[in-house]
Design a protein around this nucleic acid. Structure first.
Lengths: 119, 119
DNA sequence: CCAATATTCAACCCGACAGTTAAGTAATCT
DNA sequence: AGATTACTTAACTGTCGGGTTGAATATTGG
C-alpha cells in the first residue's frame, strides 16, 4: 500500500528493531563512532552501518564526519511526531524516568548476553 | 537476530504500518465491527482481518465476539511501554491534543483520498 | 607515497510480511 | 434446515528487511 505519512512509517519501523533501539540507548549516553557502536553486537560492521543509515533516514540520529571517524549523535527531536502521536492515545502520566532506565538497561543487558552466548 | 523484547518489537512494528495507525485512530472514536473497520480501505477484508490480528497480538486492541459480529476496541494501555520508552528520549512538552487530532485527520484523509483514487 | 584504519557499497541469500483469491467456520434470520 | 452475513484460514505471490562477504572509498600516520 502507498505511504500516507512516510516519516511516521519510517520512525516506527526504525524503532521496531531491538538492535536499533539499543543503539539509540547507547547514543543517549554519548556520541559514538560507528565502529564503537558496532562493538557490543555480534553482527557485522556492515549490518550496523545499515542500521545507522535507517536511523539517519528516520531522523533519529545524525552522522558527522570528522577526519576518518564518523560520529553518530542522537537527534531526539526526530521522535517528537511519533511521541505526539502515541501520547494522544494513552494520556499516560508523565514519564517515569526510572521506567525508561529499566528498559534501556534491559535491552543493553540482553544485547550483551546475546553476544556472550557463544563462548 | 533473536528478539530481546518481543512486546516493544511487536508494538512498534504494528505502529509502522499506516493502515494500522489509521485503524487505531478510527477505534479511538468508537468500537467497530471488523467489516466496518474495513469499509474505508481499498484492500480486501482478509487483509484488514490480518492487520487487526497484528494489532491484537501487539496488545493494542481487543476483539470481542457478540453474536456474529466481532467488535474491535482500543486497548490504550498497550501503548504504555512504548510511550514510556519514547518519552525517555525527548522529554517532549505535554501532548498538544490538537497536534494529535491533526495527525489522525491527515491519515484518515489520506486513506480516503487513496480509496477514491480510481473512479 | 604506502599501509593501515574507518566506513560504505554491491551482490546475494533467506525469511517475514502485505496483499490476493478461494474455501472454511460461526452465528442469525426466516 | 437452508440461505445469508460476518469473519478467518489457507495457499500462493511479490516485495522488503536484515544478514553475510568481499571489494571500494576516504582519511590519516609513518
Amino acid at each position: 500500500m502507498a505511504l500516507q505519512n512516510p516519516s511516521l512509517d519510517m520512525i516506527f519501523a526504525a524503532l521496531a528493531d531491538p538492535t536499533r533501539r539499543t543503539i539509540l540507548g547507547m547514543l543517549l549516553e554519548d556520541d559514538m563512532a560507528v565502529t564503537d557502536v558496532a562493538a557490543p553486537f555480534e553482527v557485522s560492521l556492515a549490518a550496523i552501518s545499515k542500521h545507522l543509515a535507517v536511523l539517519v533516514t528516520a531522523g533519529l540520529i545524525r552522522q558527522e564526519r570528522r577526519g576518518r571517524i564518523i560520529w553518530c549523535k542522537l537527534e531526539p527531536e526526530g521522535l517528537r511526531s511519533a511521541s505526539v502521536w502515541m501520547q494522544g492515545f494513552g494520556q499516560f502520566e508523565p514519564v517515569d524516568l526510572d521506567d525508561f532506565e529499566r528498559f534501556l538497561l534491559a535491552e543493553l543487558e540482553a544485547a550483551r548476553a546475546e553476544s556472550d552466548e557463544q563462548p
